[in-house]
Write a protein that binds this DNA or RNA. Structure first.
Length: 375
RNA sequence: GCUGGGAUAGCGAAGUGGUCAAACGCAUCAGACUGUAAAUCUGCCGGCUUCGGCCUUCGUAGGUUCGACUCCUACUCCCAGCA
């Protein structure tokens, strides 16, 4: 079993430590999205320096290239990538939603590779086997992600996820026993709750998940707290899930508000591609809201983007220079901005953690929100 | 000097008598961004606008025509070849 200590708790909100074979994760924590085993534009060293505790890679993408067998032969995820800290893999379930070429059936999914058109078959067993070969510490069960307000469709995706869960668990347990026999490090499994934005479906899903022999939970198919029901769905889900296991809010964090709400309602880890993607596209987070570094007003701003930011970018470079790097499309600009955004969200979540310990969460959230969302 | 080619919005470049404020690309200006097919996508991009339109443009000056960026004349400038 994955060891998870809760250090302090208030209602659903808690501070804890997830103990993985590759180190501890102090929670709540923001996990960097490293889909193809790289946090885009940022080196592992830079990730460590900006305070990232863990990264999350994607099974589907690593099946496409370079293949789980190669990574296994290369010594597994930590050894092969040189990211020696805690790691997660997502199952590939999200790609059923994000890729239009996915054909879903009762057993699994057939994807068409965007590299060469090859058919890529995935199902719970294949995902589990691939994740064990890749060798991240924490795996996600193969589920069906969906983004719909059509209750029938959402219920169908949930049902499918539920049907697949025992297969995920069985295969995971088989591989775990095999690994143990071979003296290999432990790897852990999170089940993923579905049910969209429907209270009854979420409840049904969470109640089922709660009884399963898994190490923790992913909460899937939620996207933004701009949808008002989302906060309530997170809350009611975590009220049902067992308190003593960690919960990962899958893919949410394109707005800092998402992180506050997630933590407030009992989520322990987060991942989102937004900080790095938005950075590459010129949108940078500051305490006073998001800015676009490409805007003409930064042409001659000789101060850092955020003078109070402790990131490598803000400590060393001014906005005018960064603006220039974007206007001429120099890749270093994207690296600097990605470091800044990633540091921003990592720090926000770290401060959420500290504020929970200090009993100042509400004030911190209030102050942050007032500044960030003042407009 | 001669011969030929050419001058279109910030740049490049379509358009060869009406459907042209003028394709397309770039640049500009702005917006978006979910468990990443995203260093991507969208909008704007002559002036004014109550967003329905109105006005001024296609080197310059004339002309032909109901009508010209498109045809004619002259001029200016550019390019290539020849002297």
């Amino acid at each position: 079993m994955l060891k998870f200590d809760i250090i302090k708790q208030k209602d659903l909100m808690r501070v804890g430590v997830i103990h993985t074979p590759h180190g501890d994760i102090q929670t709540p924590a923001f996990v960097g999205a490293a889909t193809r085993a790289s946090v885009k534009a940022i080196t592992h060293t830079q990730m460590r320096e900006l305070g990232s505790q863990a990264i999350l890679a994607n099974t589907y993408h690593l099946i496409l290239a370079p293949g789980p067998d190669l990574i296994e032969r290369g010594g597994g995820f930590a050894e092969w990538t040189s990211w020696h800290g805690p790691s997660f893999t997502d199952s590939g379930g999200f790609q059923m939603l994000s890729l239009t070429d996915a054909k879903i059936d009762h057993d699994g999914v057939t994807f068409k590779s965007h590299y060469n058109g090859d058919k890529i078959r995935m199902n719970p067993e294949i995902s589990m086997q691939a994740q064990w070969k890749i060798g991240a510490d924490i795996h996600m069960a193969f589920d069906q992600a969906i983004d719909s307000t059509d209750k029938d469709l959402v219920a169908k995706a949930m049902k499918r996820t539920h049907d697949w869960l025992p297969r995920n668990i069985k295969e995971h347990q088989r591989l775990a026993a095999e690994a143990k026999a071979n003296g290999k490090p432990e790897q852990f499994l999170y089940a993923v709750v579905q049910g969209g934005l429907f209270e009854d479906l979420r409840r049904e899903s969470a109640e089922l998940m709660a009884t399963q022999p898994v190490d923790g939970y992913g909460i899937g198919s939620l996207y933004t707290t701009e949808t008002p029901e989302t906060a309530n769905i997170i809350k009611l889900t975590n009220e049902i899930l067992p308190n003593d296991k960690p919960r990962h809010l899958l893919g949410m964090g394109s707005e800092p508000r998402d992180l506050f709400i997630g933590a407030m309602y009992g989520c322990d880890t987060f991942d989102c591609v937004a900080p790095t993607r938005q950075a590459r596209n010129g949108a940078l987070y500051t305490p006073n809201g998001r800015i676009n570094i490409k805007n003409a007003k930064y042409r001659e701003m000789y101060a850092p983007i955020d003078p109070d930011c402790d990131c490598y970018c803000c400590k060393n470079y001014n906005a005018s220079y960064l603006h220039h790097l974007y206007k001429v499309d120099e890749i270093t600009g994207k690296t600097l901005a990605s470091i800044h955004n990633e540091r921003f969200v990592v720090r926000v979540v770290d401060q959420i953690r500290q504020s929970i310990l200090d009993d100042t969460f509400e004030e911190y959230m209030h102050d942050f929100m007032a500044k960030y969302y003042k407009a």
